[in-house]
Computed example of a mutant assay.
Amino acid sequence: MPSAMSPVYYFEPWLQFKTPIVRHLAFCIASPNILTQIPSELAVKHNFEFHHDSKWQNYYQNYEQRLKQLDQQPQALIDFLAQLKSTRLGLRFENLLWFWLLDDEYHPYQLLGHSIQKIAGAVTLGELDFVVLNRQTQEVEHWEVALKYYLGEEKLDLAQWYGLNRQDTLRRKLRHFTERQFQFSEANQYQIQRKFAVMKGQLYLPHEQNNLSLPSWINTSRRLGQWGTQIPQTPYSRLQRHEWLCPDLGSSSQTAVWWTNGLYYQDQPTPSYYMFRQPSLLFMK
């Protein structure tokens, strides 16, 4: 089965840039969704789609020269992200995509709204991350964006993918998409014609189970990591939290000697990721 060490080609152009924040922006644009389709186990109430990998590759290629400029002069991107006071990675991801969408000479979208709240009286019904006009199709699209890291357990069924907080599961997130986040057909007086989940990040397979079949909805175009409760023999360095988007060009930490929960990385012979978890934390509620 495919794994973090499989000798296959991955489209990872973000690794060429030297400035961390530009590497992050390139990752947000170029990386594929972690899912290719809605799992059949999910009861779909409001339908949505995922962009095909080729779309993100095209968006990156159209933006590459701009990224190279930002790599030399990143202040505009630094200033834009400085408005974000939260350190949450999911909000950093959303704001990086916002920066890209505002750079509308490089892609076919016109941003019509961001963080649009839907309110009925004193009740907030929900919020739409992005509403955009696709100038190629003339369709109004609603995008919900999420940066997620899930660890697969047992047979890797939909119900067996857990976040670092075990209340955050892949099934729960997809249910939230279909039941709540994509319930709206209009925003800011625009009729919504298509709905897309932009769901990026990384999935991790159990380190000691190599005979599992991957569900068909997992996107193997994105490098899969491994997770486990054992410390590997090969040297890894621990990533800072912002590096979960993309590791810095040079190692930001020493080779791990003692291990705490978190994401670890080695770039030789090929990039690989290992999410270490203390056994005592796996079943905490």
Rank of each mutant, 00 (worst) to 15 (best):
Y60K: 03
Q57I: 01
H51K: 10
K68F: 02
H52R: 05
W56P: 03
Q75R: 10
Y60Q: 02
H52T: 12
Q65W: 06
W56Q: 04
D71L: 00
K45T: 12
A43K: 13
K45D: 03
E64D: 13
R66S: 09
Q75D: 08
Y63G: 14
N47C: 08
Q73W: 11
E49K: 15
Q73C: 14
S54H: 03
N58M: 13
R66V: 08
N62S: 08
Q61M: 12
A76F: 09
N47A: 11
P74W: 09
V44C: 02
D79G: 14
K85G: 12
Q72I: 12
Y63D: 10
V44H: 00
D79N: 15
D79W: 11
P74I: 10
D79A: 13
A76S: 14
N47I: 06
Q72K: 15
N47E: 09
Q57E: 07
F50A: 01
R66Y: 05
L70E: 06
I78S: 14
D71A: 01
E64M: 14
D53C: 14
Y63Q: 04
K85M: 04
L84S: 02
Q61K: 11
N47K: 06
L70Q: 06
Y63M: 09
A43I: 13
K85C: 06
S54I: 08
Y60E: 00
K68S: 01
P74K: 05
L67P: 07
Q61W: 09
L81E: 04
L84M: 06
A82I: 07
W56N: 05
D79S: 15
D79F: 12
L84N: 05
N58V: 14
Q72F: 15
Q73Y: 14
K55N: 13
Q83A: 12
S54G: 07
R66M: 10
N62I: 00
F50G: 00
F48D: 04
V44F: 00
K85Y: 07
E64Q: 15
R66P: 07
L84R: 00
L81G: 07
Q69N: 12
N47R: 09
I78W: 11
Q75T: 07
H46E: 09
V44Q: 00
Q61P: 06
D53Y: 04
N58L: 15
A76L: 12
R66E: 09
T87V: 14
L77W: 01
H46D: 05
Y60A: 00
A76I: 12
E64S: 15
F80S: 04
D71H: 02
L84V: 06
K55A: 12
Y59I: 01
E49T: 12
Y59W: 05
